[in-house]
């Protein structure tokens, strides 16, 4: 069983662990690093619940082998606020504007899709500060939500985008 020393920077912290080559990034994040915010909804890349960032790109952790992201920088939902704080020299306790907007706009119901949605939406807002409705829909087109009907999620992304522009 080939194993490798896996080196990752996860939420700003260097991590080093020995992991079998066939371990997915989702297994590493949830089972080995105990970051349970990243969810497993289908294990087949069809629901978006496991979305996190690999070197800033939203990726599906369930269909990514950990070894293929060796030395990459990983941001999970637990680290998003910290990432945001670092970008804006802000208090570490502050939320990313999209996290706050999700709570305020009613974009959270059962919450299971929320971490993936927020990671996808936050990447969009980083690259496209004032996204159109169509851009939001395209960016979140791989994220299933069964509770909200999506409208509140779109509103949350729009609201966060507006707030980020106002405060920029």
């Amino acid at each position: 069983m080939p194993e490798s020393v896996l080196r990752l920077i996860v939420n700003g912290r260097p991590q080093q662990l020995v992991a079998a080559d066939e371990m997915t990034l989702l297994e590493v994040v949830r089972d080995r690093l105990h970051l349970h915010g990243t969810k497993d909804g289908c294990a087949a890349g069809s629901c978006g619940s496991c979305t996190l960032w690999v070197d800033g790109v939203p990726r599906l952790a369930c269909v990514t082998l950990a070894k293929t992201v060796q030395d990459c920088e990983i941001v999970t939902i637990e680290g998003l606020a910290g990432w945001w704080g670092k970008q804006h020299a802000a208090d570490a306790a502050e939320l990313h504007p999209l996290q706050a907007a999700f709570a305020e706009q009613g974009a959270v119901q059962c919450g299971f899709c929320t971490p993936g949605m927020v990671m996808g939406g936050a990447a969009l807002l980083r690259d496209t500060p004032s996204p159109s409705r169509a851009q939001i829909q395209e960016a979140l087109s791989g994220h299933l939500c069964r509770c909200t009907g999506y409208e509140q999620i779109i509103r949350a992304v729009q609201a966060a985008g507006r707030r980020m522009l106002d405060e920029a």
Binding site: A81, A103, V108, G111, T114, P115
Partner: peptide, 17 residues
């Protein structure tokens, strides 16, 4: 909206798994 939203948007909410 939800008294527990903060936990769900930060990944702190614990589900059965």
């Amino acid at each position: 909206n939800r008294i527990e939203s903060w936990a769900k948007v930060t990944g702190q909410a614990l589900y059965a798994d």
